[in-house]
């Protein structure tokens, strides 16, 4: 569909532009400003790229970045196939649809700190069903002292929390497939696998790309849930980027390094964002 060329349309976009300028551009300028300066007794010095150099050689940042990538990819590798599988198992019509959708979506609307609280309680060996069961089975599980257990808890929590998003997106993609496709497949005697591989999967490509990239972004920014459950510990084993940044900025009030870090963080996201946008555009053109 061609759009009318009219530059006056900017007036319609103006409220959004003003609002986003207030909530994004001005704060971002402050960050850039801080990243290049140092404060000593209330006076500001221009330090150039010093903070950036310091950060790029910082082991703490490398550690957090590494953990962040491992975490995001682990979570994606579990959530995407699981989400698609559940979406395929959901009923297509009937009263069960509403019930299933409501139940599946419920974790998405729980405040993130409460998600953390739920798993903090659930994983405890004294009062939580999950931790208690594991220990009764003879598995020594304690997420506050063992970093492997802490990782496991956070990954399971993230999968529990966000797989529903993949399910709903994949389900939306499946619902958009016309019945005629399935009837044709039936006449041809196609196997269930063939139906999935040649009808359902290609039709879900668009929504799955959205799911993949949304999930990547959100898992890359995770903060509240691990903060509540493990507080980044034991040691630094579950400290991810956002948590490290918050500690720098609010905990230690190291404005310069925190700001420089913010910019690096933002640039990483921006690069992925661009890939995301191009991928979406490609789908928009390729779709019938």
């Amino acid at each position: 569909m061609d759009r009318w060329p009219d530059h006056k349309a900017w007036f319609l976009v103006l409220p959004v532009a003003v609002l986003v300028a207030f909530s994004a551009i001005i704060p971002l300028m402050t960050v850039v400003n801080y990243s290049l300066q140092d404060v000593l007794g209330g006076t500001y010095f221009f330090v150039g790229a010093e903070w950036f150099e310091q950060l790029l050689h910082s082991d703490a940042l490398h550690g957090a970045l590494q953990r962040q990538f491992i975490f995001s990819f682990t979570v994606l590798a579990i959530e995407m196939p699981l989400g698609v599988a559940i979406a395929l198992a959901l009923p297509r019509r009937g009263w069960q649809v509403s019930l299933c959708l409501v139940l599946v979506a419920l974790p998405l609307l729980i405040p993130w700190n409460v998600v953390g609280t739920i798993w903090q309680i659930f994983g405890r060996s004294d009062i939580g069903l999950g931790g208690w069961t594991l220990n009764e089975l003879g598995i020594a599980y304690n997420y506050t002292s063992n970093s492997v257990d802490a990782w496991l808890t956070i990954v399971v929590m993230e999968v529990w929390h966000w797989t529903p998003l993949v399910v709903l997106l994949a389900y939306a993609g499946l619902q958009a497939i016309p019945d005629a496709y399935y009837q044709a497949a039936k006449i041809d005697g196609a196997s269930a696998w063939a139906v999935f591989r040649y009808i359902q999967l290609p039709k879900m490509r668009g929504v799955l790309t959205i799911a993949l990239l949304l999930r990547f972004m959100d898992s890359f920014m995770i903060y509240t849930e691990p903060f509540v459950v493990t507080g980044g510990g034991p040691g630094n084993s579950t400290t991810f980027l956002s948590q490290y940044l918050t500690r720098l900025a609010v905990g230690q009030f190291d404005l310069g390094p925190a700001a420089a870090f913010s910019i690096i963080y933002f640039l990483i996201i921006l690069v992925f964002c661009y890939v995301f946008y191009r991928a979406l555009e490609g789908i928009g053109k390729g779709a019938p």
Partner: peptide
Amino acid sequence: MAPPAVFLLPF
């Protein structure tokens, strides 16, 4: 896609 943590201090 901006991490809220980035905007914490400037906000």
